[in-house]
């Protein structure tokens, strides 16, 4: 499914310079938090005086152009997926995605909902997922520290995966948006469809 070989080739090309620059990258992570679902309430304790993530150089940023991390909290509906994908593609490389909460892993308590995606990793590449409903603020801070270690080791390369396997992600995104058209229109069509089916039976 994934084009592993070329990724490994790129990894081998990492030079000393990359290791030096990785230090600066891991010490200055700017975060764009996309909190349309639940979970926005777990971020303020991490940012403010209780856990203070600015100690590690992590700070919130206002726009995708300036951000290194895209933090997606909680469930994302099909409508917000379009915005998430646009936001992700607007971010300059290198960029990392943190998926926060069970809903981004397997749908969580909304697993059978008609308008919520189940696995975020099928649509955009996710570096770290934080399981739990809700995860504690400590879990966010821990995932950030884990991401810093991964960046220093040169392992956090999901954004390259997106470029290498764009066809896979694009197909998934298209399938998602094709299946679910405008809510009201599709509801009307289904009603008509069921009526005709019922009539024939």
């Amino acid at each position: 499914m994934f084009n592993i070989n070329s990724l490994e080739q790129q990894d081998n090309q990492d030079k000393l310079w990359d290791k030096v620059i990785n230090y600066f990258r891991k010490r200055s992570l700017w975060m764009l938090h996309y909190c349309t679902g639940c979970g926005a309430m777990e971020l303020p304790p991490v940012m403010t005086s209780r856990w203070d993530m600015e100690r590690f150089g992590i700070g919130p940023m206002a726009t995708p152009r300036q951000a290194d991390i895209l933090l997606i909290t909680g469930y994302s509906s099909v409508r917000t997926m379009k915005r998430i994908i646009r936001t992700y593609e607007q971010m300059p490389e290198p960029k990392w995605v943190l998926a926060f909460g069970s809903c981004t892993v397997n749908g969580g308590m909304y697993w059978d909902s008609y308008n919520v995606i189940n696995n975020l990793g099928e649509y955009i590449p996710v570096d770290i997922t934080i399981a739990g409903c809700m995860p504690r603020p400590e879990a966010i801070l821990d995932s950030m520290l884990k991401l810093m270690d991964m960046i220093q080791a040169g392992e956090a390369k999901a954004f390259r995966k997106y470029k290498e396997n764009y066809a896979y992600y694009k197909a998934n995104q298209d399938r998602l948006f094709m299946e679910r058209g405008p809510v009201l229109e599709s509801a009307a069509l289904r009603y008509v469809h069921e009526e005709t089916e019922g009539g024939e039976a």
Binding site: I21, F24, R25, S28, S49, E54, G57, P92, E93, P94
Partner: peptide
């Protein structure tokens, strides 16, 4: 002032070096 620990005093230098190494649009 916010009762936080805060970043190290050389944080802005790190930020600038990181920004200079990023993809720019």
């Amino acid at each position: 002032v916010h009762l936080r620990y805060g970043p190290p005093f050389y944080q802005s230098i790190i930020d600038v070096i990181k920004l200079m190494s990023r993809e720019s649009i």
